[in-house]
Design a protein around this nucleic acid. Structure first.
Lengths: 206, 206
DNA sequence: AATTGATTTAACCATATAGTTAAAACACTT
DNA sequence: AAGTGTTTTAACTATATGGTTAAATCAATT
């Protein structure tokens, strides 16, 4: 073997991720990925035969992160209020670290919807248990949440959308001041948790 | 003049819109737009010098629709509960008719954030009035909504995200049954209105 | 009939890009 | 030193694509 100065494959994946997330599958250029990884195109193809294969790898890993996090939070909590707390904080934390991840997934999602459904299907996410937990906890409590799925979608929407629409929110409400936007986002988790608790338990707990 | 069988420019715009929305700026092909408009590439360039110009036109018109709707709803309502009602129904109705519009705007938004901020800036949207209205109505009423901007973002999130994430929601919660998803969406407006009324007025009105 | 603008045809150019290839250099192991 | 897998270099192919061009055609106006 030779000059394995650092794991080249990892460098490539990292670079590919950066470029793909920033520009999407169509907008990304293999040359740019190679430059970003500080190697040349030939070596890039030496590791990953084609752009498609490289993209698949990046995409699978990226969405895997999201699913893993969901699963982890989901499996370590029993009751709903605890779940909300963990989930909202964990998800917002993750997206805050990698702000473009949500946009990336959503865009490629619509370019190739079937793949994601597959991925999620094989990821072992137990949607039934999730729905059951919410039903059990909310049934006797509130008239707002008649369908658990609405509640789940509510929570996802409230967590993810503010990142996806960042340029609009920052531009319109904060005069393009990214610090103001950041401080808005850091209040976001608390706000969502309060909101959800309010509609589910009809009092703002915690 | 000759064979102006129908307004060609409109046909082009319509076709361009379809293709751009489906594939994004990068993924779209001028040839495909020409085919879709049932003309040839030469004529396409005869009307719109470049892909960029055509895209600008489509994008501006598309986001203009959204902004116009917001303005209209906003200017024809005085009190907040009325505003919520109009806004939620109008927005969900619009996106339901053109489901990919949200994804399109959000994706291109992140490709070129500054343009949208400009567009919104010159569109005459009066964000201050909006915030003022919400502040006035919510100040004495609730402990959940401490910042009007959070509430606005909440409403936008709840309305738009379910469309943006359609493949996930449909795949995970409805076993890819698009009818089930559609019926979910048609309950969506009522649910959001109830939810927002609940957190703002602490009772589910209307 | 002559003019004019809209539209087609079809070839063409320039460029960007994914992907290939072959040879050499390199670093590490044996 | 020989061998092995990694990396570079650099040229190359094939193709797709945005955009152009020139000539012809077509339909309506004058």
């Amino acid at each position: 073997m030779a000059k394995k100065q650092k794991n080249t494959e990892d460098r490539i994946i990292l670079a590919a991720r950066k470029v793909f997330i920033a520009k999407g599958m169509d907008g990304a250029r293999m040359q740019e990925i190679a430059d970003e990884a500080q190697i040349n195109k030939a070596l890039l193809h030496y590791y990953f035969r084609s752009k498609g294969k490289l993209f698949d790898r990046v995409f699978t890993e990226t969405i895997g992160e999201l699913i893993d996090l969901l699963n982890e939070v989901f499996l370590t909590t029993n009751e709903f209020s605890q779940f909300i707390n963990h989930f909202v904080r964990a998800y917002i934390g993750l997206i805050q670290k990698k702000p473009f991840i949500a946009n990336f997934v959503l865009h490629e999602l619509n370019r190739n919807p079937s793949r994601i459904v597959e991925l999620i299907g094989t990821s072992g996410m137990d949607k039934t248990r999730m729905v059951a937990m919410i039903s059990k906890e909310t049934r006797p409590l509130t008239q707002v949440v008649t369908d658990p799925v609405h509640l789940i979608v509510d929570i996802l929407s409230l967590c993810i959308f503010p990142f996806v629409a960042r340029p609009i929110i920052q531009g319109v409400f904060f005069d393009d001041d990214h610090q103001a936007y950041d401080s808005f986002i850091s209040q976001r988790a608390d706000h969502i948790i309060e909101l959800v608790n309010h509609i589910v338990f009809e009092n703002p707990s915690i």
